[in-house]
Design a protein around this nucleic acid. Structure first.
Lengths: 150, 150
DNA sequence: ACTCCTCAAGACATTTGTGTCCGATTATAG
DNA sequence: CTATAATCGGACACAAATGTCTTGAGGAGT
């Protein structure tokens, strides 16, 4: 309804990485297994996040993916800007190229406040926050009934 | 960000038809031209809406598409249920198959009130309302800079 | 009856999103 | 230093959504 599958995988993976000890690379394979998503596909998503500067990757033995220094504070909004493209919030709900206060579609003024709520929410939540929530054990990241382990 | 292109076309077309005099069939070609969308593709979308009972279609001369009797009061929610599938609001924002109050993803309780706002909005707006808004001339249905004519 | 105009239906093409494979790169072991 | 095992990286393959085309069916006017 709102996010592409690619973005969903990306967010899930980022949260999972954020739950792991910082500085210790996490294997793509482990993430994929834990989240129950196709590992080769996930690898590509993570690669992209590396290019964009959110993650660091290390090849060879003891390799894997880490959140880059300081990126624990990254908001969902920032992360989604990387996976969905920078202006995924700009769009008109009816698909008009240009839909502003001056040239508005009939939904515009009703939709605007709701959209702002969505954006505010996404900007408010950070990977760190979500990781902590998961670590309490009250929330799940995958469909599997297994708990969250370090 | 929220709706598929198919749904966007469908909504646009429905609103446009609702602005036209009831009982007088509207040509697919005219709608496509007015909204600036591919006519063959739009035809399929309208065809589908006919099968689902929202529209009536008439072949031959003086043919075209009409809103079925009483369907001016249709809400966007109802229309979208036809194009996106009946449970397009049920989905978890992170893509989990099961995400309820009991088995929640870390976004669940933050996302829920926003989702409710979206649903309430979509249920509140009817084709009739939107058509009237367009008829005031203050709002546009397409990207073209042309006004709204009967 | 004939003709023109419309939608109906299916096959086909293109684009985008999703998923897979194999080679390049790196760290450790010997 | 070389071999080897483990990992990422980028090219490749598949699927679904989007968009196009052609042919046929049905209805209105002449």
């Amino acid at each position: 309804m709102v996010l592409s599958r690619t973005s969903q995988y990306a967010i899930q993976a980022l949260i999972y990485i954020a739950t792991q000890p910082a500085g210790e690379p996490v294997l793509n394979r482990d993430i994929a297994e834990r989240l129950n998503v196709p590992s080769a596909y996930l690898a590509k998503i993570l690669q992209n996040l590396c290019k964009q500067g959110l993650l660091d990757s290390f090849r060879g033995r003891l390799g894997g993916f880490c959140l880059r220094e300081g990126m624990h504070k990254t908001s969902l909004m920032q992360a989604l800007a990387l996976t969905e493209g920078p202006d995924f919030t700009k769009s008109c709900i009816l698909g008009l190229k240009e839909c502003s206060d001056e040239t508005a579609c009939p939904m515009h003024f009703k939709w605007l406040p709701v959209k702002k709520k969505i954006i505010a929410l996404l900007e408010d939540m950070t990977l760190e926050d979500l990781a902590k929530a998961v670590q309490t054990g009250k929330y799940r990241l995958s469909d599997l009934p297994s708990g969250v382990m370090a």
